[in-house]
C-alpha cells in the first residue's frame, strides 16, 4: 500500500465519489425515463470514468467493494469511511 500524507488518497476518493454520484443520479433518472438517449450517454460516460477511477483507487488504497481473487486480505484494513485520521482530518 502506497504511503503518502493522505492528500492523494483523498483526491482520488473525491474523484471516485463524483463519478459514482453521476452514475447513481443518472441511474435514478433512467428508471423513470429509460428512452432518454442523452441520459444513457451520460450514464455510460460516467460508468466508464467510475470504473477507471475505482481501479486506480483500489490499486493504491485497497478494495472499495469485496476484493477480486486475491492473495492478501486488505478488506478490513482502515480507515473505514466515517473514520478521521489522528489529526482529525
Amino acid at each position: 500500500m502506497l504511503i503518502d500524507n493522505g492528500r492523494n488518497r483523498e483526491r482520488l476518493l473525491r474523484q471516485l465519489q463524483i463519478y459514482s454520484f453521476m452514475v447513481y443520479d443518472t441511474l435514478l433518472y433512467l428508471d423513470a425515463y429509460p428512452d432518454s438517449k442523452e441520459a444513457l450517454q451520460t450514464y455510460n460516460k460516467y460508468k466508464s470514468l467510475e470504473s477507471k477511477a475505482m481501479a486506480e483507487y483500489e490499486s493504491k488504497y485497497g478494495p472499495v467493494t469485496a476484493p477480486q481473487v486475491t492473495d492478501s486480505w486488505e478488506w478490513t484494513q482502515g480507515p473505514w469511511p466515517w473514520q478521521l485520521d489522528k489529526e482529525g482530518k
Binding site: L13, R14, L16, Q17, S20, F21, Y24, P63, V64, T65, A66, W75, W80, P81, W82, L84, G88, K89
Partner: peptide
Amino acid sequence: WQYEKKLQYPVKIKN
C-alpha cells in the same frame, strides 16, 4: 446488496 467502502459524499468535521 453489496457494500461499498466509501461515503456517498465526504463527511469531514473538524470541530
